[in-house]
């Protein structure tokens, strides 16, 4: 095994096992994207091949058909205890990106997850975010406590020393655990390749376009690309000049808008 990848994997697996040991009721979040697929795989590897806790997929109902197909296929192959959750209430009331993207995300993702946590009493969620991904995530910790409103007090986080991940005795509603926080996008793809992990077909180029990150259909745009295999993707990322989430309309627009407003003195 490639040495740097081996080190990354070891650290991730140790973190996942710590979470399992320290929390009563953990679960892992799975969007079917590359990062969370790698994270679910690491959970498998950490426990001799069987993920010993639920795997949560939030269905906004605006996802690509390929996502649902991929999800069900892998869930069966990997013998996952899959929980699919949806904010039926908001959907019934007609929630869609047309009502404001943030609004839509809040209702269909955040609120759906809140409801599920409440119902199933999860006290730790394993999430596949990475520091290099964007913005504020650079400030994330491996263990990151959230309150009931999912609020993250990043300015006043507990210190995290060495590999001593601590479960606080109070002041959190659930813990976010970030086992691949220290990986880069490039390393995730290399790992996918090395481990021969299944890749959602949306990542591969079709008609000179492919998705670099997977969100909901209305809010994700493909990037121009001819990369049709993992090798080609690895090469593309290695030489890429644009940030990963450039394809996510929401993030790009928002970042740009913020810049504009700042320049005008609003913030």
């Amino acid at each position: 095994m490639n040495k740097p990848l081996e080190e990354l994997e070891k650290k991730s697996i140790a973190i996942i096992r710590e979470a399992k040991a320290q929390f009563k009721n953990p679960a892992v979040m799975w969007s079917t994207g590359k990062d969370s697929t790698a994270a679910v795989w690491l959970c498998k590897k950490a426990f001799l091949g069987k993920v010993p806790f639920p795997v949560i997929h939030i269905d906004t109902s605006y996802k690509f058909p390929e996502i649902y197909e991929f999800r069900d296929k892998i869930a069966e192959e990997w013998n996952l205890n899959l929980i699919v959750t949806k904010n039926e209430n908001a959907l019934k009331k007609g929630m869609s990106p047309k009502k404001g993207r943030l609004n839509c995300c809040t209702k269909l993702k955040t609120e759906a997850l809140k409801n599920l946590i409440e119902e199933r009493k999860f006290d730790a969620l394993i999430l596949a975010i990475r520091r290099d991904e964007h913005g504020i995530r650079a400030k994330e910790r491996f263990y990151s406590p959230r309150d009931e409103d999912f609020h993250w007090n990043y300015a006043d986080q507990p210190a995290e020393l060495w590999d001593l991940y601590v479960r606080p005795s109070e002041d959190f509603s659930h813990m976010r655990v970030h086992p691949i926080l220290h990986w880069t996008e490039f390393e995730v793809w290399q790992y996918m390749k090395q481990e021969k992990l299944p890749v959602n077909p949306l990542y591969f180029a079709k008609d000179n376009k492919r998705y670099r990150s997977l969100g909901c259909m209305p809010c994700t745009v493909p990037i121009p690309s001819n990369a049709a295999t993992i090798d080609e993707i690895v090469e593309e990322i290695r030489t890429s000049k644009t940030p990963e989430r450039a394809g996510r309309a929401q993030d790009k627009e928002k970042a740009y808008m913020m810049q504009k407003l700042r320049a005008l003195g609003y913030m």
């Binding site: 404001g100 943030l102 609004n103 809040t106 609020h151 928002k254 808008m257 913020m258 407003l261 609003y266 913030m267």
Partner: peptide, 14 residues
Amino acid sequence: RKLLKAYFEEKATI
């Protein structure tokens, strides 16, 4: 302006 900022920090809803 405060709310505008809070919105972008995902601390306030639209």
